[in-house]
Design a protein around this nucleic acid. Structure first.
Lengths: 339, 339
DNA sequence: TGACTATTGTAGATCGATCTACATTTTTCA
DNA sequence: TGAAAAATGTAGATCGATCTACAATAGTCA
């Protein structure tokens, strides 16, 4: 009582009824007369009472879905979060976000913290942790993994057809006459991870071969930040014999490449064509006008939310949902320059 | 037991000790022999036991600080979240994020949901809700409000000196010879809110007057998204007599203005100079090279975290921390064109 | 040895909700 | 009217941790 948080007992005392009666009102349960409801609701309003989630969680499900994401830089994560929010907004589930920074290949602390808080399902973008860890986690708690290709009998997956997406990019560039197409890949994950970037790289190699461009295969691997990709691109340009086109593993990275090209005094697309991946917000800005492969992050988030809810309620077996990529042509790509 | 989550009793049974003994090991409390610790830890590992936060919260503080932010679009929010994470990373407090979308002027559901979860303090970016609501909330739970200027005896504030920031922008443009400087303000909040945008607008007016440019005062108000600011800028340009310089209330908005200028075939800075606010990631990209006012969002987040922790532990009275803005000159501003 | 202290462990109350089982009152209708 | 059914309310167990109070055991030293 007094200065600390009011409890259900305080409300009961104020309304002159039992704790059970208040609980019934809170839960909209059977057996409450209009008069009692009235009295209780007034007491609740007077005291500013709100039930403690922790106490509820002792007896009932939390109606909460947890989302674990790497620290929130990067437009693509924001797209996914938006989608999850949308997907849950109309239903009874709330969303709780646990950002994490210290993911290792052995464990994901963001997911563990959500497990501690008894969320009913977890949606996760976890690029580093090994698939076997995710798998054992998912045996305890319904889990939807976004943007990883590892197969699993235990967790749902929402993933883009990155192989097809890479093919779209390569075919587009090849159709413009490019042969020397370098792929800047962010495939930096360790063992036990089948990342989208690994699949994009495989898709790139496959498409290049299919188009008879084996001789021009060229992959540079670097981190996915703008700065790292900028550095990697600069190094590539400093080597003799630079490519006429870049297929970069993300928009974020592509912006870094554009920075490096600009600093090298090269024009886009006149000297070098650039294709990104994700179709993030800035790609469409006229200052970038970046040709890119859309994977529809918001839709992926929305689907992840739906799968999570489904899995809590009824479905037993794991499912996979694949988003179909589309090429968005803009002005960062053009015909190869004839010598 | 069996298939559901293991409890402390399961661990106790497996280790052949009492529940209290396990609890001691968990809390690193006094009175545990090395042998007992060994046995208990082994049982914990075997069962994959992790204590339920909800059960703990019934008896002890949660050691959690909640962060409530509008849905996560916008680089500036991401900067703040990063800062909060950094600020808490070394201490005992964890961070929980509650994104919200349906903030009204009467209440902020994200903050309420954190209160339900018994976080020990709340850090919030809440542009819409009235100050009086924040004030009454803060009387129940330590609260740090980021990016609002409303005075309060109950919550801490972390805020930029927006008046000075606006002056920096105006002075910079005036020094380049601009007179017809229009301010695109995102000051769209209702009553009971003293937003940074309101203060920037006031700062703009004050600086213009101080510089003898009263006659050129011109403010256009629009939402803060890129799209809305783009539309507002386009409308402004369609009116006759367009300004030679724009001071936009945010980088996000400034990117929208750049889009509109580009679509109108106007060059920056040759035809129109543009200044943003926030110094977000993309402002430094050569494709934008946006002159802007830095307010150091990451530092603000870090300070907010420190204030929150301080307030939980010891401090009783509310404090204000003011970040000093700095002008970052880039290539989106230049001398006014002589006719 | 025996008294005192330190160490190691446990029993059981407690936190604030939910919810079953049951008691009491009111309504229905033969 | 009176018995059955429906409506309304409460008592008290319960969830899984923490933590106080205390018991049992081991160690110390006059």
């Amino acid at each position: 009582m007094s200065s600390s948080r009011p409890t259900i007992s305080d409300v009961a005392a104020a309304a002159g009824v039992s704790r059970a009666a208040v609980s019934k009102v809170l839960r909209d349960a059977y057996g409450v007369s209009p008069q009692m409801r009235e009295r209780v609701e007034q007491a609740i309003a007077e005291l500013g009472y709100r039930p403690r989630e922790a106490a509820r969680a002792m007896r009932t499900a939390t109606r909460t879905i947890g989302v674990a994401v790497p620290l929130l830089r990067g437009q693509f994560f924001a797209d996914i979060l938006d989608g999850v929010y949308e997907g849950l907004d109309t239903g009874p589930y709330r969303m709780l976000v646990s950002p994490f920074d210290h993911e290792t290949s052995e464990r994901n602390p963001g997911m563990e913290s959500l497990w501690d808080r008894e969320v009913e399902a977890v949606i996760v973008v976890s690029p580093k942790v090994r698939a076997s860890w995710l798998d054992s986690f998912a045996q305890r708690l319904p889990t939807v993994v976004v943007a990883r290709h590892d197969a699993s009998d235990h967790y749902d997956r929402v993933v883009n057809d990155d192989r097809a997406g890479a093919a779209l990019a390569v075919e587009h560039l090849a159709a413009l006459g490019h042969r020397r197409i370098t792929h800047l890949s962010h495939n930096v994950s360790g063992p036990g991870v089948l990342s989208p970037h690994a699949v994009r790289e495989a898709g790139y190699r496959e498409a290049m071969r299919r188009l008879g461009l084996d001789a021009y295969l060229s992959v540079v691997t670097c981190g996915g930040s703008e700065a790292e990709t900028c550095r990697a691109t600069a190094a590539l340009l400093d080597r003799g014999d630079p490519p006429t086109a870049l297929f970069v593993g993300s928009d974020q990275g592509a912006f870094g490449s554009l920075r490096a090209l600009s600093e090298h005094g090269l024009r886009v697309p006149d000297d070098v064509s650039v294709v990104g991946y994700d179709d993030t917000q800035f790609a469409s800005h006229p200052r970038f006008s970046l040709t890119t492969v859309a994977q529809y992050g918001t839709a992926m988030g929305r689907v992840a939310a739906e799968l999570a809810v489904e899995r809590i309620k009824v479905r037993k077996e794991a499912r996979e949902w694949v988003s179909q990529p589309a090429l968005i042509e803009r002005e960062s790509t053009g015909p190869v320059r004839l010598l």
